Simulated scan of single mutants.
Amino acid sequence: MPAPKSLLGRAFALLAVFTAERPSATLSELSRHSGLPLSTTHRLVRELVAWRALARDEEGRFTIGLRLWELGALSPGALGLRERALPYLEDLFEVIRHNVQLAIRDDLEVVYVERISAKDAVNVLTRMGSRMPLHATGVGLVLLAHAPHDVQERALASPLKRFTEHTITTPQALRTALAAVRRDGYAISDRQLEPITHSVAAPVRGPNGEVVAAVSVVVPVETRTDTVLPAVRACGRAISRSLGWRTP
């Protein structure tokens, strides 16, 4: 097929290069498979990376970016982590009957890729596809506690936005909270986003044991967190096993 002439058509031609069989590509491969000149490919790829539609890995190859994941998570046909996790999230919801959430990290933010909520559940600020800072959420604390060291240091050096009087707002308090998450294997965010809720979160691990996501429940502040914690941790382990992780 001839190379598209419109800007939108050229951008989609580049994105269409990526398939399940070819999840990453170099600049020259993108040019060759899309039929676009190398100079045009370079310019468009730079813009797509800035928009987070593409990402560049450590080897200099390009992959689909998280922004497209966010948009794809809004589609009923979204694949991958969300679909693997959904049966276990539904089981957790049947136990909790409030809010159940699945999230991943994008730099210093949490992106929610799934949320199940009862009609009369306690109100939450999040929705599927929304973003929140890492320091103020249960899933964020889990993800940050297991993030690379440079990510943790950048988070500690960044302004920590206050949402309530209980929000973690100092580097020392955040450092202490992250150490507790690594020690205990879970996080409890106590009234950090809203004064009426607790968030209890646990890690989701990939095949190599790396933390790739976090699952949480958000419950009314009067709920005892120890009554929901075992179910949350069991859900995290079940999703992890479905992704290929095996208990050491």
Rank of each mutant, 00 (worst) to 15 (best):
V113C: 12
V219T: 02
S199N: 09
S242D: 15
A214D: 01
E114L: 13
K161S: 13
A173C: 06
Q172G: 05
L160E: 03
A238D: 05
R56H: 01
L143E: 02
T176D: 14
H166E: 15
E90I: 06
T26I: 00
T63K: 04
A136D: 09
N99T: 05
L71Q: 06
R105T: 04
V200R: 11
A201E: 01
R22L: 15
H198A: 00
R224T: 00
T167I: 11
S31P: 03
R61M: 03
A238M: 02
E153S: 11
A238Y: 02
V124P: 13
E210V: 00
L68A: 07
V95D: 13
V151L: 10
V45N: 04
S240K: 15
R56S: 00
R84S: 01
I116E: 04
A11Y: 06
A73D: 14
R97K: 15
K161R: 15
A147K: 10
A53V: 00
L89C: 05
A16Q: 12
R97S: 11
A121I: 09
R97Q: 15
F12T: 14
L89V: 05
A20I: 10
A25M: 11
A118N: 03
T41N: 08
I188A: 08
P37G: 02
A155I: 02
P23E: 09
L143D: 03
L48A: 06
V218D: 12
S34L: 11
T137H: 07
V232N: 04
D91T: 14
G72K: 01
W51E: 14
L102W: 09
T26W: 01
L160T: 07
M1G: 11
G206Y: 12
V200Y: 04
E90R: 15
A53W: 02
E58R: 05
E83W: 05
R237H: 13
S6I: 12
G206K: 01
D120G: 05
G236N: 10
P87Q: 03
P4F: 00
K119S: 10
F93L: 14
P248I: 07
